[in-house]
Design a protein around this nucleic acid. Structure first.
Length: 556
RNA sequence: GCCCCCAUCGUCCAGCGGCCUAGGACGCCUGCCUUUCACGCAGGUAACACGGGUUCGAAUCCCGUUGGGGGUACCA
């Protein structure tokens, strides 16, 4: 089939949004020119306005604007905007996971880009569970996938459709294809197909053996689609331009299994049509199945045309597609490690796309506004956990104390280094602000406050070695000084600081060196929250007890 | 093998024929701030894969090479 390369300009992309880039900046109108490149892709031209935007980044954290207000955005499109309110159908996209595993990073990104596109277009984002393969589908995973999407904040429209429940419709389509000659029954067993392929020279693929045998249904029979021998099947991709395949290289693929269930291509083509899907946004790993789906649609006389956008793959350090098996990519695992969904979604949005003003960390509402599917990259993107962590740290620091405490809850009560009944939320709340600005992951929270809730500090060997053993002489002297001073000074951070650092002044030693032995004695580690606040919270008796105990240990 | 896709700092993104002595972010390094750590601040490091065209002019357009990835199932 020859797909007339129709315009992809049905895609509505608002180019006249009013942005408010900083709280104190007056809203400005951004009128950007549209240019259509040779291959039909819409590109956005940067105007002077944009230069002005990027220069408006001083003050505040560079590249970060979590605090900013969400943008105001007029719903109506400009006179020469891309949405024709009368003739353009509402964009309707779908995320179609198959429940063969947890939602992983790649799936999350695909869902996100679909969601971004739908929300920006004022269209719909629907879910379809592609569970036609009963062997591999695990129903219990469906709910986990939903919950992961909810965690990410990607809300969907309507009720998710389960492909497995639409068998009748798929079968009807197969009947139709059989009836109009676009498909035929085949009795070749997989190993027969393979054997013949090897025999004729190693080129894999089905040889069309049963094409004209006029077989009917039967045990072990499948239905294959009759791919045209000539011609090309092409489609326009919003990200890649025109992609075309010669029909001759496509084999007659199976559309109905011998157990009577439909294959992915068939169900996919039928359901997209039935659900009124307008745009298919998915990973590039599916680009090769597109001609098959297109061929089926044509043979079924499906009206309308799908618009595709194949996203670049997210890859691992070896530049391979993320795999559930070898890579650590389950969204659930990231939740468990203390990533904030806002940070995850924000980071995912920067994989394959970047905002025109280079400000990467920003509220989702702004990303919805700025996102252009046509500006998505073509090449694979490495999932950089380091950068994700940086985003996460930014988001954590921008939480209110209340939010921080609340989001830390599960790390305070589950699998903690302390006995639950020794934990005191009030005590934690005092320390919270000091912890919040130091962690990149919520899972790190316990290590900053554990010394307050365990009977004894958990001694970190490396810290002990460095401060107490190698610096034994100083440590001993400082500890003696601390014991003497702390015995009767006022018990607050300021007094404690003055009391301890008087040693630093007397002996002309840096404060850093002086505080170290006390820190290790009391908290077990050489790093942690500010020392004097920590001591104030711990209390005089326990502080003195730990210092004395450390001295004993130092001796022994 | 065959088909498809891709190619700018280590990584992510910007670049849309002159504004590029290639910009931002993460990372890394240096310094400042500082009771540790972290934050913050000021710097630094570092890239147009290669070869041909087209053009007055190419990171940007075209072709090829090389490299990488994806697909090649009665998975999706």
């Amino acid at each position: 089939m020859e797909t007339d390369d129709e315009d992809c300009s049905v895609v509505g992309v608002s180019e006249d949004d009013v942005l408010s880039l900083e709280h104190d900046a007056a809203p400005r109108t951004n009128a950007n020119d549209i240019a259509i490149t040779a291959n039909g892709r819409r590109r956005r031209k940067r105007g002077e306005d944009d230069m002005e935007c990027s220069g408006r980044r001083k003050g505040g954290r560079a590249g970060s604007k979590i605090f900013s207000e969400s943008v105001t955005r007029p719903k109506e499109r400009g006179p020469d905007g891309t949405i024709d309110p009368v003739n353009t159908p509402v964009a309707r996209v779908r995320f179609a996971p198959s429940p063969t595993g947890y939602l992983h990073i790649g799936g999350a990104r695909t869902a996100l880009f679909n969601w971004l596109f739908a929300r920006q277009q004022g269209g719909e984002f629907v879910l379809r569970i592609e569970d036609t393969d009963a062997e591999r589908s695990r129903p219990e995973l469906i709910d986990i996938i939903f919950r992961s999407l909810e965690w990410l904040g990607l809300d969907w429209d309507g009720t998710p459709v389960h492909q497995s429940e639409r068998g009748a419709m798929h079968l009807a389509a197969v009947e139709k294809l059989l009836a109009n000659g676009s498909a035929y029954w085949c009795s070749c067993a997989p190993d027969e197909v393979k054997a013949r392929a090897e025999a004729r020279g190693g080129t894999p693929g089905y040889d069309g053996f049963c094409r004209d045998r006029a077989l009917g249904p039967g045990d072990g029979h499948v239905v294959r689609f009759r791919v045209p021998d000539t011609g090309i099947t092409a489609f326009d991709d919003l990200i890649r331009g025109t992609v075309s395949f010669e029909n001759a290289v496509l084999e007659d693929f199976v559309i109905l299994r011998s157990n009577g269930t439909p294959m992915f291509h068939l169900a996919n083509a039928v359901d997209d049509a039935d659900q009124g899907i307008t745009h298919v946004i998915r990973g590039e790993d599916l680009i090769n199945v597109t001609p098959k789906v297109l061929l089926i649609r044509k043979a079924l006389s499906t009206p309308g045309e799908l618009i595709f956008a194949h996203l670049p793959l997210i890859v691992n350090e070896k530049r391979q597609k993320l795999s559930k098996r070898r890579d650590d990519v389950s969204v659930g695992d990231y939740i468990d490690r203390g990533y904030l969904s806002e940070a995850m979604v924000n980071y995912l949005a920067t994989l394959g796309w970047g905002p025109p003003d280079d400000i990467e960390i920003r509220p989702l509402a702004e990303i919805v506004d700025l996102f252009r599917i046509t500006d998505v990259n073509k090449s694979g993107a490495f999932f950089d956990v380091k950068k994700l962590q940086h985003f996460n740290g930014e988001y954590i620091r921008n939480l209110s104390i209340t939010q921080f405490v609340s989001k830390s809850t599960r790390w305070l009560y589950e699998d903690t280094p302390w006995e639950t009944d020794r934990f005191d939320i009030g005590t934690f709340e005092v320390m919270a602000p000091l912890v919040q600005e130091r962690v990149k992951l919520l899972s790190e929270v316990p290590s900053y406050v554990d010394f307050l809730f365990t009977p004894e500090p958990v001694i970190d060997d490396e810290s002990w070695q460095k401060v107490m053993v190698k610096g034994a002489e100083l440590a001993d002297a400082v500890l003696d000084h601390a014991i003497a001073q702390f015995a009767d000074c006022d018990w607050n951070a300021a007094s404690l600081e003055a009391a301890l650092f008087s040693y630093a002044e007397q002996h002309e030693i840096s404060k850093g060196k002086v505080q170290a032995p006390v820190r290790v004695s009391v908290t077990g580690r050489s790093v942690g929250p500010p020392l004097f606040e920590s001591l104030e919270v711990l209390g005089r008796d326990e502080t003195l007890r730990r210092i004395a105990s450390a001295k004993v240990r130092l001796q022994g």
